[in-house]
């Protein structure tokens, strides 16, 4: 069983939901990325999504765009992102690592080499924002062959026929984008999310994580009541930039608060 599947199975056994923080690799500076990853785990992260910076992050709102720009301005490359994971794995072999980013840096590296290195350094899953199932075939096969999970997005507008396809192709977990818009936008409607998550679950046995629009303990708690995982990104990235060098400590505290709120929902099941 993959590290991601194991993590979800253990959480389920304890009646808990997964907390999945997202940060952009290399932001605000490369030296802070690995300490931030450890801080996230200390704060209660179950899986970490590490953003690979890209010059044209089409699906991201201003907060993550700027994070990407800051990282690129410091010369952060995909190869360096792999180094962060390798470094992190020296002291943490348990927390699943998901790389999240755009297709072009992977295409430039070559999908096969990318998959090889991802496996070697201890990545567990890959989410390529602009590889929908139609275009993900090549990479998904390479990742599958190395027992790495290809994670797909679902949106409020995803039609049933696609839910079925994505449910079959997806590995690890599915990431339901709860809002129409870009990362960091708007507020989440929990009733709506509950309904959609339940509907998605009629097409798949994969855990369903929910992201976009979760910005505090309160919204995380509400989402945790209806989904298997809570993904939080823009809020953390904003916090990192506000905190400067104190970012690891601040993030750990912030995440711990969210963790506590989520766990206080008790053993309620997702469906």
């Amino acid at each position: 069983m993959s590290r991601i599947a194991t993590t979800f199975a253990q959480l389920k056994a304890h009646g808990k939901k997964a907390l999945i923080p997202f940060i952009t690799a290399g932001d605000p500076k490369p030296a802070l990325t690995v300490p931030l990853m450890h801080a996230l785990v200390a704060g209660g992260a179950d899986v970490i999504e590490l953003g690979v910076p890209f010059s044209d992050p089409m699906a991201d709102g201003p907060v993550i765009q700027r994070a990407s720009e800051r990282a690129l301005a410091q010369g952060v490359t995909l190869a360096q992102v792999f180094d962060f994971v390798k470094e992190f794995r020296k002291t943490n072999q348990a927390t699943p690592m998901v790389l999240m980013g755009y297709a072009n840096p992977i295409e430039a590296m070559g999908p096969e080499h990318f998959a090889d290195v991802a496996k070697a350094v201890g990545v567990d899953g890959v989410l390529v924002v602009d590889y929908p199932p139609e275009e993900a075939g090549t990479l998904a096969k390479l990742l599958d062959a190395r027992a790495l999970d290809t994670i797909f997005l679902l949106s409020p507008t995803t039609r049933d026929a696609r839910l079925k396809t994505v449910g079959e192709l997806g590995r690890g977990y599915l990431y339901y984008v709860s809002l129409k818009g870009v990362t960091g936008a708007g507020h989440i409607d929990t009733n709506d999310v509950a309904q959609r998550v339940n509907h998605i679950k009629t097409f798949t046995t994969l855990p369903v994580g929910v992201g976009f629009g979760i910005r505090d303990a309160e919204s995380a708690k509400r989402v945790a009541q209806v989904a298997d995982a809570v993904v939080i990104g823009s809020r953390l990235v904003q916090e990192i930039i506000d905190a400067g060098d104190a970012a690891p400590a601040r993030l750990q505290a912030l995440l711990a608060g969210i963790r506590a709120a989520m766990d206080s929902t008790g053993a309620k099941s997702a469906v």
Binding site: V129, D130, P132, E135, T158, R159
Partner: peptide, 8 residues
């Protein structure tokens, strides 16, 4: 090559 949010 777009995010799922644009597919529909």
């Amino acid at each position: 090559f777009v995010a799922e949010t644009l597919i529909d």
